[in-house]
Amino acid sequence: MTGRNVASTALKAREFPILVALAAVVVTTGLVNPTFASSEGISAILIESSVIGLLAASQSMLIIMRQIDLSVGSTTGLVAFLVGQNAAANIGVPFTISVVVGMAVGFAVGIVNGFFIAYLGLPSLVVTIAMLYVVRGVFSQLAGGETITADQVPAPLVELGSGSIFGVPYLFVCALIGAISVTLLLRYSRWGRDLYAIGSNPEAALRVGIPVARRTFVAFALSGIFTGVAGLLLLGRFSFADATSGLGIELYVIAACVIGGVAIAGGVGTAMGALIGAVLLQTITFALGALGVSQFWQQAVAGALLVLAITFDRVVAVRSARRVVRQVEVLA
């Protein structure tokens, strides 16, 4: 038990440097360009990080157990489009139906992924790259050149996309709720702790009787539902969807997880960390613009910072792991 407490302290410590980095970026940029650190500036960053943040939070669950889901970009876009199309075709349909449709589509893709990965034992990278193509192809076929425009989007979603509470955009509140619930689920439920165990050492997890396949399947199904919600947020955020919606965002999602301290090697990290990673990623993008870095340099600098963040995180992780080992030795 003590060992677990120490470990969870170390987990917290992993997020600390990211928060420091985030604060540093906001303050420095804010000094140069005051609009950036104004409440509108920060609210803009939070809005832009919400969809990626929620996806990263749910992705962290998979990466922690050494899985990955690259199909989230296609699925998010598909959900956004289908919900918009469904709402437009059935004017006056209750908003809850839209929500159910969105979550059901995400769930469906999630269980297909989960089935192949958990029960057929196929590698998740391969299955989800394949699903990235399949879902995107089906989506493009359904959408064609059709666009879902603002007047077709259910009003509550539009409100969700533009409103805020105490200055915090609703969208970000959704992402935050998602990240907190995944974090708590993983830290305090038996189910969640199993995921960490699987990610740390899959063979050992199996030997101590953790039903690895079932955990994997449920994690993908759950992640599918979150992806569905992310699709709703995407539709709310842009009040628009077409065949290109969500294209290519999967790599940003993984990047957010990595920056947020969710180790690709599994077993480490939290959903909150992943969300903070998404916010940091977005903050850097905005900060570069606010600092007057040319458009053409922005991506290069962002890429360099990403590599730097991964390196830095690695150094911190190695150090905190050493500390854990030392502390465990002391306690023993």
Binding site: T244, F286, G289, A290
Partner: peptide
Amino acid sequence: DDATKSAQQYGQILTEHP
């Protein structure tokens, strides 16, 4: 020509040039 990126670029414009 990507709706998402274009919307984000709009945000950039307003942040950089209030």
